[in-house]
Nucleic acid binder design. Sequence first.
DNA 1: GACAATGATGCAACCGCTTGCACTAATGTG
DNA 2: CACATTAGTGCAAGCGGTTGCATCATTGTC
Lengths: 323, 323
Amino acid sequence: MAATIRDVAQASGVHVSTVSRTFSAPHLVNAETRTRVLAVAEDLGYRPNRAARALTTGRTHNLGLIVADISNPFFPPLIKAAQAHARTRDYHVFVADTDEDPLVEEELIQTLTKQVDGVLLCSPRLSNRAIERLHADVPFVVVNRRVKGMPTVLMDVRYGARLAIDHLTGLGHRRIALLSGPSGSWTSKEMYETAAAAGGVDLVIIGPNAPTEEGGLAVAAEVIASGATGVLAYNDLVAIGLIEGLYERGVQVPADISVVGVDDIVAGRLNRPKLTTVAMPTAAAGRMAVDLLLQSVDDGGAATLATLATSLVVRESTGQARA
Amino acid sequence: MAATIRDVAQASGVHVSTVSRTFSAPHLVNAETRTRVLAVAEDLGYRPNRAARALTTGRTHNLGLIVADISNPFFPPLIKAAQAHARTRDYHVFVADTDEDPLVEEELIQTLTKQVDGVLLCSPRLSNRAIERLHADVPFVVVNRRVKGMPTVLMDVRYGARLAIDHLTGLGHRRIALLSGPSGSWTSKEMYETAAAAGGVDLVIIGPNAPTEEGGLAVAAEVIASGATGVLAYNDLVAIGLIEGLYERGVQVPADISVVGVDDIVAGRLNRPKLTTVAMPTAAAGRMAVDLLLQSVDDGGAATLATLATSLVVRESTGQARA
DNA sequence: GACAATGATGCAACCGCTTGCACTAATGTG
DNA sequence: CACATTAGTGCAAGCGGTTGCATCATTGTC
């Protein structure tokens, strides 16, 4: 159906290899021949078949991007940045969603393996062991998880969590609840360790929770019961859900309880009250991850570790603790 | 590096064709041989190379899914449903984001063409003409747009819009503002035509608008100035943004102005006030689209048109018009 | 017991493209 | 002017699979 390299070769009176070179190594073919071939190709609507090319070169020029949950607004900016950045390098990014399920994640990686040159693993739920095993088959870069010997992009969660807690204590909050995330989450662990290390804080751990509004909504009663006046939520969705749940129970934010989220998603800015949150450089992380991955694909891969800075955005969901 | 079919053939003492059949036509090979081959394959960690297979079969077992904006919460449920459904058919779905840009959309389709068996085009921004032209290269199914001669999945926007407007007029609203969407949007056009056809309504069109919170936020002043007491927004995001904008200007929803959204995204349920909205069957649409696409890939494609029912979900953002 | 049908496997061409090597003609060098 | 370069192109072997056809035992049938 579609024109192949042979059609073009025939129609322009040269050998297929010349056509091939016209596209993949133009400097090797005579300028005149090249323009003629290109004209014919254009005419026939010929486009090189990437899959066939991949067969001989071993490069698909595709990247896989695996996320736990595409409907978590944390990911889209990362995905978009990664896609846009990859496109400038003539790579395409295929996105897949694991539904927070490690098994699906593993299966997805397996099938992706042969179709991409590398995989961006964002906030994986798989164990480090499993990731290391899978790594034999295809280059990875891991985002939001520390895996030894693998290129990694981290956002400085500890620093962000530290800022959040200092902010809360600075407002006079002494009893602080930490709403943790899914059990496989590295971010959640980092937050916990930071909070646990903070002095002068009476820490309550609530969770693990689903990293969604529902997750926050569900623990509102528990938060109230805990007696905490400050809350650091696993992410903005959880924070928003929690605030809604508190509101339904007549608890005011920030008058009664202060809430800090993590991620700085758009919805946080439109929430009422506007959310105080730890901003994550997701777009930068997406671009950086692509860079590291391509580098790793080409050079065989140094296990670079990039840590991106986070910051605290103070809005309206936090305030002075009651006396 | 990785084991190929030839390695397996050699190691199990059969011809490559037998190995091939073991995987793609097991009933053609002796049970005993099959188990032996499978064991060896397992042992060597062999997995059929899908790209190579695609070369001869012409089937990649991949589907492309193109959306205008992955960060619009309308899409993720559709994407997830499509991915999950496709997986049950041994197909994989690759998602790509066009950033609302028709040019990127076209380019994306072009590159996807050879790597997938078909493309799900969701809420395209391309012209019908362009879509029809591209259709020569790869099977499509279009979601949220009516394109002649092409398998199509529609959600009954007219009916939904009709319900919304009847709801508003039923509450005594006479002057109604319609916040339209992006200019290429079919949904927006449908909404407009429905609203225009509704009798006894004083209609104000505001737009086109970006289909985001920002889009709604930006026209709050204009809505107030229009004197409308009821608003039908292009989608929930626009509605939420608008409500926020109205709130900032001291206008109460629904006391002063009633707002209806479209899509029924999760955030609408957590907004304050909770959003009255036209529910769109996005997950069902995703599954249906995959079904139609696979059917079209196999059978060469009947241009089925599936229209999915919509409904109105009344919550708190609408109320009686002031006298 | 002869012959057809059936089941299991091997053979080899092919899918669309890349690439090392060989070849020819033109160019440069002393 | 003979010879070494170099530029441009063709040749053909793959990449990792699939598949129509041929081959060869078996088994079934009368």
